[in-house]
Simulated assay, not measured.
Amino acid sequence: MKQLCTILMMLGLNVVVNAQKKTTIHLWPDTVPDESAAKHAAVVTPDTSNNIVRLTDVTDPILEVFPASSKNRNGKAVVICPGGGYAILAINHEGYEVAEWLNKLGYTAFVLQYRVPKKESGALQDAQRAMRIVRSRAAEWKLDPDKIGMLGFSAGGSLTARASTRYNEPTYTPVDKADSASAKPNFSVLIYPAYLDKGPGNSLTPELLVDAQTPPAFLFATADDPYANSALVMAAALRNAKVNVEQHLYPKGGHGYGLRTNNAAGATWPLLLEKWLVSIGY
Rank of each mutant, 00 (worst) to 15 (best):
K21R: 13
M131V: 06
D224R: 08
N74R: 12
N14A: 11
D30W: 00
A155Y: 02
L209N: 15
I133Y: 07
E64L: 04
G149Y: 05
V17Q: 13
P145Y: 04
T24R: 10
K39S: 07
P226M: 08
H40W: 01
G156S: 12
N240Q: 14
A178Y: 01
A178G: 11
N50R: 12
D60F: 01
A217W: 03
N229Y: 00
T205S: 15
K198T: 00
A236M: 11
K184V: 04
A212L: 04
H26E: 13
L89I: 10
V233E: 02
N103V: 02
L159F: 06
V16G: 00
D224V: 03
D60A: 14
F153L: 07
Q213V: 07
Q128H: 15
L63P: 08
A99R: 04
K198E: 13
T45I: 01
S154W: 02
N229G: 04
V116M: 03
W276Y: 15
L143P: 06
V58G: 01
A130Y: 08
M1D: 10
R129T: 06
A161Y: 07
V111R: 03
E94T: 03
K184A: 14
V116C: 06
Q213F: 00
N14H: 11
V189C: 07
P193I: 06
L196Y: 05
V58I: 15
R260Y: 01
R132A: 03
F66N: 06
A183Y: 11
D179V: 09
T173D: 10
G95H: 05
E207G: 01
G12D: 06
K71L: 12
A139N: 12
D47I: 01
Y114T: 09
P216V: 04
G75N: 12
E207V: 14
L196P: 03
A237V: 08
E246T: 15
T24K: 08
A139F: 00
A90M: 08
H248Y: 13
Q20M: 14
P200C: 02
V53L: 15
W28I: 03
P61H: 08
G156V: 09
L4F: 15
Y172C: 09
Y107C: 05
T165G: 11
N50D: 12
V175I: 15
L209H: 14
N51E: 07
N72D: 14
T6I: 07
I191F: 13
S154R: 01
P200A: 14
A38G: 06
A217S: 15
M1F: 05
T173E: 15
G149D: 03
G84L: 04
